[in-house]
Design a protein around this nucleic acid. Structure first.
Lengths: 141, 141
DNA sequence: CAGTATCCTTCATGATACTG
DNA sequence: CAGTATCATGAAGGATACTG
């Protein structure tokens, strides 16, 4: 029915209101999601139509964009307005909670931006140490 | 060599310093990662040994804990100290950048906690609307 | 235009068994 | 104790073709 077999996460039918821990993790998983964040950021600058999102979405596929938008809509972070023109016109935007999320996300973006260099350096160091350890073990030549 | 075939993310060998956009997304993906956040939160209360993390890790497997710790270590968010006792003793803790990350993550946790009810309600509403639309389409009886 | 449906490949994760 | 190696499975994501 939806864009794939298991379109929207549901632990078990009717398990709503079980442990909020599950829901929190579910929400956090959006942040790591490949397309949720970029979609929210795009919509943070103003509402957009599907095609616009697709074009600006840094290579997101139609299938993934639909899926991401449905998920965000189901979470209550994004609204959808379909106008029955021919062909149909659909507009997406952030709901108030969606805007709020973007606000608390911003410090995280800043942390990430500030620490890009540190993380990359750490990668290099870690990989070097690994490589050296390996060549020590194997005698390297 | 590591715990699975492709232990740590590397776009291409030597592509360090390419686009920071990639790195930022890579970092954000830790937040959505099933075990990175819970590991960091546990370590945020103080350094712990592997076994302790395993026990407190809400069902994380040995393999996944190792993998998560390696990744966080490579990112420079977590330090590792092995003491050559018999058997070996290994302790993990947050680095200063790791602590910083936890700080900017806290507003996100708060948002998630505050919005758990809203999100769950949104799920119910969305699913109800879907179900109603389906029964309308199929005549339901 | 804005999707859906289907196929296919790769990746993530868990279970299990083994080791310095 | 703190891992590593291997296997198996399901989910994630992309490509493509079709439609109201």
């Amino acid at each position: 029915m939806a864009t794939n077999g298991k379109p929207l996460t549901q632990p078990e039918a009717g398990s709503h209101g079980a442990d909020s821990c599950y829901v929190v993790r579910e929400i956090l998983s959006r942040v790591g999601d490949k397309w949720s964040v970029v979609t929210c950021v795009l919509l943070g600058e103003g509402s957009l139509r599907f095609g616009e999102l697709l074009r600006r979405g840094h290579g997101v596929s139609q299938r993934m964009l639909t899926q991401t938008l449905r998920q965000l809509e189901r979470d209550g972070l994004v609204w959808r307005k379909a106008t029955p023109t021919v062909p149909v016109t659909v507009e997406y935007g952030l709901t108030p909670p969606g805007e709020d999320l973007l606000v608390v996300l911003r410090p995280l973006f800043e942390w990430a931006t500030k620490n890009v260099t540190m993380v990359q350096d750490s990668w290099v160091q870690y990989d070097d140490r690994l490589a050296r350890a390996a060549s020590d073990t194997f005698g390297q030549g």
